[in-house]
Design a protein around this nucleic acid. Structure first.
Lengths: 142, 142
DNA sequence: AATTATTGGTTGACGGGTCAAGCAATTAAG
DNA sequence: CTTAATTGCTTGACCCGTCAACCAATAATT
């Protein structure tokens, strides 16, 4: 099964494997998708924001934003209204219910991240962060 | 935009961001999806294999396998036949066309991985691999 | 003023993954 | 033997992301 690979190939496969497990596991632990929680956290800090600005902070497609917000609205976590001074933009904000729930989510998230990083020394964590940045940078050049 | 985060949270976000860029960029560079190339590479080393064994090597859903193979078959890269001694299993193998193409893909893949890891010393690469393994292990415990 | 961008948002279709249900073939049990 | 479980594969439905087309509202040109 385990095919012959260069060590670099193994790194690449390792990244994909890691990635494959990450989001589903997070969701199972935290009860919410990583991106949806990011949306909520972003909203938590601004009180009210247009979808497009939200999108810039989150870095996903406008269509995805629309659908996530639709879902979060149906779940009662957020509310939307039109900007009276510019009827193109819709302003999004957390409901009190959403605000309440977010605390628990953040806690689960921290718990999750701590589990993820158990066994990593402070030095290793900064090393890891550094490597992630450099990988990201290398990707952006392509 | 950049919200206040703990350093651990930033690592988590970094992983997600990295992940988000990885596959699409790979596909743009190599002309094939990472998983599809993994399928081809797996096939390259066995000549003929049942879908379920293929699945175990690749670690994705059986349904996904079915659809990928369907696509690869339509593209003329692979062929399938029934196992005469057990009509449940379908045996998959590369066509000569598939065999020809795979060399170029692998080259692009190596080029891609090298770009991804530029600036990483030999020591850092082993460190990175080690960290990926440990992260994976931590995830598996959850 | 009237016409022409441009902007913010929504929708539809697609690819990639999951799970759940179904089917045919094989194997195991009564 | 016949019935019941298991195995390998396929299909349908769903979620999450993308892109492309579209619409309404505003801004810019003329």
């Amino acid at each position: 099964m385990t095919t012959a690979h260069s060590s670099e190939e193994r790194i690449f496969e390792g990244m994909q494997a890691l990635n494959k497990g990450l989001s589903p596991k997070f969701e199972r632990c935290a009860g919410i998708t990583p991106t949806r929680l990011r949306l909520l956290q972003e909203l938590f800090q601004v009180d009210e924001i247009s979808q497009i600005n939200l999108q810039k902070g989150i870095d996903i497609d406008a269509a995805a934003i629309t659908r996530h917000l639709k879902g979060l609205e149906e779940a009662g976590a957020i509310s939307r209204r039109n900007n009276p001074s510019d009827n193109r933009v819709t302003l999004v904000s957390l409901t009190t219910l959403g605000r309440e729930k977010i605390a628990a989510y953040k806690e689960e998230k921290n718990r999750f991240i701590n589990s993820l990083l158990t066994g990593f020394s402070e030095q290793e964590r900064t090393q890891l962060m550094d490597m992630l940045d450099r990988l990201q940078h290398n990707i952006d050049l392509l």
